[in-house]
């Protein structure tokens, strides 16, 4: 058990390091896209350590406790995440729903802490984040339902193994409509444009993060990196056949994050109700059609 927990912590740490580096590289890529130099690839590490080294403010115990609970929840979620079919801390307990709902503990902690700061913009940001969540989560869960039903397991390693068996395609090919919905939902999850309404720095002063500085903000940055790691890995495992070894995982991970980031950078921002309307129109419809086709008719490519 101790070994498993250590492996889990290792995975969380690896996820943090991986996403922070890839995040930095992506900042550089975006810089090049805008004809700039862009920062160093390890800029994100510097940012985080700088924030941790500063002396911030505290608005009372709930403000601190919420941050700890949030980071704790996210680290816990990352500890369950498989990297490849073999590298997983808790075999057969890497249930899909854990990732969706344990992630929610982290989000709840952050929302609590943000509202506890007493700033109205923080509450507005939380409201927007939750509303966005209501939008992207339902189509995504319907596609996940299809995948679980088709692959007959809700364990992520089993879903990976299912896609890697000869004769089965990756789910992004096997369920093309579902794959499209998956990409859109992933963009919503990552808070990429056009769905980044809840951050909106110029409008609501970066939303939930408005009151944070110093170590609390640093911890939220760590939280953000790890949650991006969880969400992108979830996509890789569900739709892209997972990975049989760590290099394939790295390649897939990097590709997914970069593509999503590039799409994001040529988009504007939706209004919050546009986000909801968007997700409940096409993605939900596509997800339902996909589920019908795959489950009732059994047409899986």
């Amino acid at each position: 058990m101790i070994v498993n927990i250590l492996v889990g912590i290792g995975i969380a740490l690896f996820g943090f390091a991986l996403q922070t580096s890839i995040g930095g590289i992506n900042r550089k890529i975006v810089g090049r896209l805008q004809k700039r130099h862009g920062p160093r690839w390890y800029q994100e590490f510097i940012d985080i350590f700088k924030l941790l080294s500063k002396r911030g403010i505290s608005h009372g115990w709930i403000y601190d406790f919420g941050v700890i609970m949030a980071l704790g929840g996210i680290i816990a979620t990352a500890m369950f995440m498989p990297l490849t079919v073999d590298i997983v801390a808790f075999k057969q307990f890497d249930n899909f729903f854990i990732f969706v709902y344990l992630l929610a503990v982290g989000m709840l902690g952050m929302a609590m802490s943000a509202s506890g700061s007493g700033n109205p913009w923080a509450s507005i940001g939380v409201m927007r984040a939750l509303t966005t969540m209501l939008a992207y989560e339902v189509p995504f869960l319907i596609v996940a339902l299809t995948i679980i039903n088709v692959s007959d397991s809700s364990s992520l390693t089993a879903i990976q193994a299912f896609q890697q068996t000869a004769g089965n395609n990756w789910f992004i090919i096997a369920l093309p409509l579902g794959g499209l919905v998956g990409v859109l939902s992933l963009m919503g999850m990552l808070g990429k444009k056009p769905f980044e309404t809840y951050i909106a720095p110029a409008e609501i002063a970066s939303g939930p993060m408005v009151e944070y500085g110093g170590k609390q903000l640093g911890m939220l940055f760590i939280l953000h990196e790890i949650s991006v790691f969880i969400e992108v890995s979830l996509f890789v495992h569900l739709f892209l056949g997972g990975a049989s070894n760590i290099f394939i995982f790295l390649i897939k991970y990097f590709t997914v994050y970069t593509v999503v980031n590039l799409i994001s950078n040529v988009n504007g921002r939706f209004k919050i109700d546009q986000v909801v309307k968007f997700f409940y129109k096409w993605p939900l419809l596509l997800a339902i059609i996909q589920a019908f086709i795959a489950i009732y008719l059994g047409w899986v490519i």
Binding site: R27, G31, R36, H37, G38, P39, R40, Q43, I46, D47, P201, A202, A205, S206, M209, V210, E211, G213
Partner: peptide, 11 residues
């Protein structure tokens, strides 16, 4: 940004 600088929203 190549110096690691960037605008932020709040003090």
């Amino acid at each position: 940004e190549r110096l690691g600088m960037g605008p932020m929203a709040t003090p």
